[in-house]
Each structure stands twice: as C-alpha cells, then as structure tokens.
Nucleic acid binder design. Sequence first.
RNA 1: GCCCCCGUAGCUCAGUUGGAUAGAGCAUCGGAUUUCUAAUCCGAAUGUCGCAGGUUCAAGUCCUGCCGGGGGCGCCA
Length: 570
Amino acid sequence: MMVSEILSGWMKEAFVKALPDADISRVTVQEAANPAFGDYQCNEAMGIAKGLRKPPRDVAASVIAAAGAHPLVASLEIAGPGFINIRLKDDGLIESLEKMVCGERMGVPDDGAGQCVVIDYSSPNIAKPMHIGHIRSTIIGNALDRLYRRLGYRVIADNHIGDWGTQFGIIIMGYRHFADQEALQRAPVEELERIYVKSYEKTREDEAWMEQCRAELVKLQAGDPDNLALWEKFIELSLGEFDRVYRRLGVSFDLIRGESYYRDKLAGLLERLEHEGLAVESEGARVVMLEEEGLPLCIVRKRDGGFNYATSDIATVLSREDEFSPACIIYVTDERQQLHFKQVFSICRKLGCETPLMHVWFGLMRLPEGTFSTRQGNVIKLEALLDEAEARALKIVKESSPDMPEAQQREVARAVGLGAVKYADLSQNPQTMITFTWEKALALDGNSAPYLQYACARICSVREKYVQQFGEAGLQAAGIMITHPAERELVLQLLRYPDIVRRAALLYKPSVLADGLYAIAQKYSTFYQNVPFLKADSGVRESRIRLCAVTAQILQDGLALLGIETPERI
RNA sequence: GCCCCCGUAGCUCAGUUGGAUAGAGCAUCGGAUUUCUAAUCCGAAUGUCGCAGGUUCAAGUCCUGCCGGGGGCGCCA
C-alpha cells in the first residue's frame, strides 16, 4: 500500500478514537508544504474543530494522543492553527521504498481491477496530413491510455478517424479533375489535401461544382461502386501515412474504427430518437431540444437528409456501451468541441445510457502570430517537427559525445528529439492554450525530457563504473541507508510516485506525472552533484548505487508512462 | 446577446477537496569541473496572484460584478 494511504488510514482511526461523532470522510494526509514542517501533514483537525466548535489545536492534540505510535512514524506535532505534522522514520522510508519497487507496478494501486475503459483519441481526418494541431490529442491521449493501463484498467484505445464526412464529395470531384498520379505516388496525403483544397475553393465560386460534389457524396452514401472504391483508396493512402507517424511516435491503437463504422446505425438511431419523442422537426431538419439542460438544440439530421457528427457520435457511444460495457468512455479532443460533447452526452443520457462519459479537452495549439490556417500556409507538419527535433538533438549529441558511433548518435538523437517534443506538450496542463515556438517545443535543458533522460543516463553510467571497479556481488545484499539530507529528500520524492501516477490519471493530466518526475530528477541531480558514490566508504557506496538504481527504475517507469524512451547513454 | 475557458515574476508556466512564508524553467548576474556524463549543480535578484466587493479561523484557489484575451453558439467535424 502507498505510504500516503497507510498514513491516511492511521489518521482516520485516530480521529475516530478521539472524536467518535466527527465526520472523518475528508481526513487524509498530504505531502508537507515545507520540508521544515515534516514529511506529511494532516489539515483536517481545523475543519472538524469548526463543526464541533472546539479549539482546533485541542482537537489536534487529542488526535495525536489517540494515534499513539506507528512503526513508520517518528513524530507527530501540532503547528500553527492546528496542523498535524508527521515526520517519518528513516527506516520506515527505506522499507517502504524497497517494498514499492519490488513489484512490476512500482507501487501503483490496481484501481481498475480489470474494468474496461474506452479512450477515443487522435482521430485525424482522411485526406489531411497530420500537423502539429493533431499532436496534443495523440500525445495526451496516449499518455492517458498508458496511465489507465498501469492503474489496472483494460483500456481500449480507439482511433475514431474522420472517414465519413461531407468532405468526400469534394475530394472525389477534386480527384477526378485535378489528381496528379505521380504526386499521389510520391506523397499521397499531401496530394489528396491539394486536390481537396482546390476543389473546395471551386465550390465557393461555382454553384454547379458544389451541386456535383453533393451528388457525388449522395452516390457514395448510397453505395455507388466507383465512389466507394475511391473512398477506400483515400482511406488506404491516409492510413498508411498515419501509421508511419504513429509508429514513429510509439502510439498504437486497439481499434481503428472510423465514423463510417457506425454509418448503418444512423437511420435506426434517428427512428429511435423520434419514437421516444426526442427528435422533432425544425426548419426541415430533425433536432433534439436541450432546453432543460441549458443547451442549444442539437441537429441530428440535416435538411437534406444527411446525418452529421452528433448523430454519429451518439451511435458510437451506444455501440461502445453495448459491446464493451466500459466503466467509462473518455474523449480527448480540443476545447472547441466542449458544447458538442455536452449535447451528445445529454442525448445519450436521455436514451438511457448510464456509462460515465468524460470529455477531456485541451487548449488549442497556436503560433505566436495567431491561429493555424491552411489558407495562410502556416501549418507545421507533424513529421517536419519531429525531423527538426531529431536534427537539433543530433547536433548536440555529436558535440557532447563525439566518440559515440554514428548509428548510436542517431538513435540517441531520435529518442531525445522525440522525447523533447512529447514532454513539451505533456508537461503543461492540457487545459491551457499552447503557443507553439520551436524554442520551447525543442528545449533540451531545464524542465525538459532530455533533463530527465540525462539523469537516467548518468545513473546507468555510474552503475557501469561501479561494476567495473567493484564487481556486482556487493550490490545484491546492499541495503539503502540514509546518511545525507540529499538522500532523504530523494527517497521521500520517490515514495510519492504512486500517488502522482494515480493523481495524473484521475485528473486526466499527464502534466502531474511530468512534474513529479521532474521533481525526482532534480532531487537526484542534487544528490549526484553533492555526494560521492564511487569514492564513498564501502557500505555507503553500495547503498548509494542502489538508490541510484531505484531512482532509474522509477524515472524509466514514469517516462515510459508518458511514452518517452530512456537511452542508457545520451 | 448567451455559454465555456484563461488572466500568477521580464517571458513560458506550476500551485492538491480552501491551509502555514505563492513556486519552477527560460532569460539576467555571480560561483563550482586534478573526482562518478557541465544537456549538470550552488547562490543572487524578481510579485498590487487582472480589478472591486463578499464568504471564513484561513482565499491564487469558493461566490457576485467589472475589465482584458481565447473559443463556441441549426444544417462542418
């Protein structure tokens, strides 16, 4: 069990003993705000004292008296208006840490116990290249995917690709008139985008063209073999290119079901909505009124008879609920879809769907000069970003490790460049807008992936040097000792790891984990810089090498949860 | 007009169900390498937490109003 849970349980018991009538549901411990106060603190004596109309310090004192002794705890103290400060024994810290790292889960609790969670993320559109606007859903979604798996959930990562929209009429017309087969071979998605944009522009000035696009869409939706074949071709070309990016990013899905997967369910869904009196006619369209929910109405069938995104998403929810009975369905999209999902979720509720539905939204990525726009030509392709990241990393690797074989330099640069890009995104609270700058996305110092990777690489190096000089035998039996404040702070930080992983998942914020890992790496760097390892006395030496190893285990584990690799040398 | 987010150091951002003296990184200045990777470490400096009220033992955090920025609001996704 996590240290925080052990202490929380213990405090709860103490509150019950001291104050049998008090509501202890909120009693927990948290890490101390300031190391000078102790290691953990409990603040609830003040809240409970208020309800009981007793002096808070008296309540805290009676809780401390009732708590008695605990094998992990060195001291309990009252401070300020009624804080209870908890200081742990060094042995207790070490014992807890050893217990934590001996299992596969690094102390992270099995909250999911095998329950299913569907996570819907990335979801690019067919015939459009992935640009840096897609990176957040993909990277954040993938980190949540990994976090929920670690917490014991059976995750179904579903890439809900945009493969059935109204754009296909436009693309088909574009393809028939403007396609350059040679370009299509060379850079398929780029060419598809070009013909889409060209055809789209033509719809704006040429009404007849627009009509033909609509007609092609209707034909496609009616199952016309020629259009269907083209549609399949577009999908195949796009998926091939998406795959290349996903492989590079280390992202994989359990399902890739585009919107088209649900297309046969739409008519039936509309019937059901009408049958239950939810969908009504309005200006030729079918809409669901959501006044009670304080939301604008939602169109579930267009005037021309076509279905749109909302209907498709409702069908998707119902289908997933039916097929997987998930404990939760999580959507990872940008902030602009907040209203859309509120509407979709409300309608699902009205239809009797009880599955918890969660929209995890993130702020839009933009450039310093404003939003992205295909028309302004200022989109940055995802692959170009990754190329640039690797190139910059390679330059530094070549400077700092000139003796490293070229192939390894490239491999290191790949891991570091990719890590930097991912971390730049993951380390920030998702719900804030990101202003993209090359400088920030590719930062290699300070709070960045390379900083964490560097810490890991130094640990590997230290261990190697140790084994060279002293052999491996001494490490097997070596216990960790706390002989220096830097060691104690590091151990304390490592013990928080399971809490941090759980918190990151519960809040849908990989940034919480990134912050926690950065704090560990900072403590480690201080430790590394300020105490000798190889030149320490025998015994202390082994203890320190073991602490290094444990730190590496946790950093690697945490970075893996963020989808970031840790090369042995950088 | 209505709805949702955001406003914290020069810049980019953390800040736990309301808790103790609001913290990091970048940039700036000063120091550390005969020793384990200097992509590092140590130190200095930096704040009307947008503004005004309110709630309470305690507000960056909760409530109300205002100002500023972003996004959304019937046939795109």
